[in-house]
Design a binder for these strands. Structure first.
Lengths: 192, 192
DNA sequence: GATTCGATCCTAGCATTGCTAGACAATCGA
DNA sequence: TCGATTGTCTAGCAATGCTAGGATCGAATC
């Protein structure tokens, strides 16, 4: 019994190591650099070990995505909690969101761009993803305005932020005017 | 002289064939299926021929992106030209944009998501890309509202559309409510 | 019309990728 | 101490982007 428990613990610990290392590697050199060989070398095990924890690279990305979603939700909640009034809350949310995307581009990609084999906008969507959306809706729902469903409003506002985040990082938008763009979004979309 | 011209013509024709085939393959089976081997086989030449036209796969994606950007600009202009009044023009623009993204996902990715080695938001941005942005600004600029630069407004509106397009296609947003989301964006962002 | 020479193209190969089969070793229960 | 199970690694597969080198074809010259 106790032996088995120790093994389980060690296995779980190694799994966390894999996810943490994958994330670290992705944040340092991008997801392209996260190859199974490099990852295996960094955790000081052979490649096949990875496949005893995850079905493949996709699932590893998915694991990073779940971890990242939880952090993003926390970051958003922390930012909104410190803001006064609906308008300021939304502005704080937007800035926190874009800040997270800029500071953790690899994690952001894992959540919102790459294929991590996760279900989205579905009943069996993993809890951290649902909760991240919930974190957005908590502040956005109150500025949806009359006759607009909070869910729909949140989706739309979120999509706008996502567009800003990805286009900016891909070099499609000049990074200088991020702040006025955010102001514009908040001023026009949010009904206070 | 004439011999050289014929050769140049044939070369240009083969280059068009490469781009068209790459695009076709990408639209049929996604960009992952566009391998240099498959592409070479389809155009009935060997792999190295591709590298005599393009530096690598990246540049082929870039060529598809430029072609696609021109088409998208035309689609947007056609849609806005057929609409009456600023408000309807913006709505038509939004629908045309999302329609293009949905109908040509591979081309859309080449333009806005993948790395085609192109310069964006820069002085030496290729003409088709600049023109596509110009096509957006023609209709969006007139609803920017007081004190808001048309360019800034266009960027922000465009980013919102981009977010809707990509999140929907990646399965992050349920596709059902696209229309109300567009309505919301147009109603709130555009000043008529 | 034969010959040389340059452009054009293809065969073959490299290093890297994700993933897996099968051999090997360590560990646990008896 | 032995047998079996569990765990891990070595080695390898097919596919990827890309390139070096030789073969071949055609065009200009004598």
């Amino acid at each position: 019994m106790s032996v088995q428990e120790r093994k389980d613990r060690e296995r779980a610990s190694r799994e966390r190591l894999i996810v943490a290392t994958a994330r670290e590697l992705a944040e340092q050199q991008g997801w392209d650099a996260v190859t199974t060989r490099r990852l295996a070398e960094r955790i000081e095990y052979s490649q096949p070990v990875l496949y005893s924890h995850f079905r493949g690279k996709r699932e590893i990305i998915g694991a990073v995505a779940l971890q990242g979603a939880a952090e993003m939700a926390a970051a958003v909640r922390a930012a909104t909690a410190a803001a006064d009034g609906p308008r300021e809350r939304v502005a704080a949310l937007a800035r926190a969101y874009l800040d997270f995307a800029e500071r953790h581009p690899a994690v952001y990609d894992a959540i919102f761009q790459l294929d991590g084999g996760l279900a989205y906008a579905h009943e069996d969507t993993p809890e951290p993803l649902k909760d991240a959306f919930a974190a957005l809706m908590e502040s956005l729902g109150e500025v949806a305005g009359d006759g607009v469903e909070p869910g729909l409003f949140t989706e739309t506002f979120w999509a706008s932020l996502h567009g800003l985040a990805t286009l900016t990082r891909a070099g499609r938008l000049p990074p200088e005017n991020t702040e006025p763009r955010v102001e514009l979004l908040v001023d026009r979309l949010a009904v206070v």
